[in-house]
Amino acid sequence: MKAIVIVNRTGQGRPTLEYQTVDDPVPQADELLVSVRAAGINRIDLHRSTAHGGPAAGKPMIAGLEMSGEVIAVGAGVSEFKIGDKVMGMTTGAYAELATIDHRFALRVPPTFSYDQATAVATVYPTAHNALVTNGQFSSGKSVLIQGVASAVGIATLQIAKAMGASRIMGTGLPNANAHRLAELGLTRFLISGQDDIATEVLKETDGRGVDVVVDMVGGPAIPDNLECVGLGGRIVNVGWVGGTKGEIDLDILARKRITLVGVSFRTRTIEQKKELFEHFKRDVYPLFVSGALVPIIAARYPLSAALAAQDAMAEDKHFGKILLHP
Rank of each mutant, 00 (worst) to 15 (best):
A3E: 02
R9A: 15
V22Q: 03
A29H: 05
E31H: 04
E31M: 07
R37F: 08
I41P: 02
N42D: 03
R43V: 04
I44M: 08
I44P: 05
D45Q: 12
D45S: 11
H47C: 13
R48T: 12
H52Q: 08
G53N: 09
A57F: 15
K59Y: 13
A63N: 12
V71S: 01
A76G: 11
D85Q: 10
K86F: 10
D102C: 09
D102H: 13
H103D: 12
L107E: 12
V109N: 05
P110K: 06
T112E: 13
Y115D: 14
A118F: 07
T119S: 12
T119Q: 10
V121Q: 08
G136I: 02
G141Y: 06
S143W: 00
I146N: 00
G148A: 02
S151D: 03
I155Q: 03
Q159M: 15
I160L: 14
I160W: 04
G165R: 09
N176V: 12
A179P: 11
E184Y: 07
Q195W: 06
D196L: 11
D197M: 11
A199R: 13
E205M: 12
T206K: 10
G208N: 04
V211L: 10
D212F: 02
D212W: 03
M217R: 00
V218E: 00
G219N: 00
G219S: 02
I223V: 14
V230Y: 00
N238V: 13
G243I: 00
T245Y: 14
K246Q: 13
D250N: 11
L254V: 11
V262I: 13
G263W: 07
E272F: 05
K274Y: 05
K275T: 15
K275Y: 14
E276K: 09
L288M: 06
S291C: 03
G292P: 06
P296S: 08
I297V: 12
I298R: 07
A299S: 15
P303N: 06
M314V: 13
